[in-house]
Amino acid sequence: MPFLEVEHVTHQFGGLRAVHDYNLAIEPGHIRGLIGPNGAGKTTIFNLITGIYNPTEGNVRLDGTRINGLAPHRIASMGIGRTFQNLLLWRHMNVLDHVKMAHFSRIRYGLLGAVLGTPRRHREEREIEDKARTLLEMLDIGHLAGQAVTNLPYGAQRRVEMARALATEPKLLLLDEPTAGMNPDELVQIMEIIRRVHRELNLAIFLIEHRMRFVMELCERIQTLVFGEVIAEGTPEEIQNDPKVIEAYLGSGNE
């Protein structure tokens, strides 16, 4: 059974129909890609899945349960982690605290525990910290734990976002343009990291990308979105050879 199902979802921004009759099913452990020209509605689809927007029509199901209408933090704690296209980090927090914060829903010590500094608080904080450091190591940014995020280079900031998303312990990870703004070196590294994360944590991944080589190499299946509608879906070869995709997307000057 698919872990995530999106059924006939349509979303309107006032008069603008950003997404129309969109469908998706992701099995556990799969890597799927979403491509499409600027303004096609890709990020909107992520926002619909994660509860930031509530779809005008249609349903989003997680493990069979309907989740549209739930608050984003509930959906996140049910197993959907995400990164953001335009890096939404907390500017006054260091790297380690970013990753610790994503354990929020599993904190049990409560206000009194926090205020009185109970042994339980110290134990839980230590556990969270250990987990956070393990994740930072996995993404090769363990040495940055104490750094302020605002001083980090772009590539490192993207990794912090990914570590933070992974700390929610998701079963499905949504990556919104994970390579945006990266140089070729960083590109190779991030691809390796995505593979490693996928292998070691056994996640499903759904990613939005503009760089064709990247998507083609990573994803098992790809959807192409144009003006809010899926015009083609299939394996990387099928997508590459689809005349509609070539005309609408590859031919439009986007790499």
Partner: peptide, 17 residues
């Protein structure tokens, strides 16, 4: 702090804002 610095990111990281 998370809620102050970016509320969208906070909710996406399971924080009940």
């Amino acid at each position: 702090n998370a809620v102050r610095d970016n509320e969208t990111a906070a909710t996406a990281m399971t924080v009940d804002t």
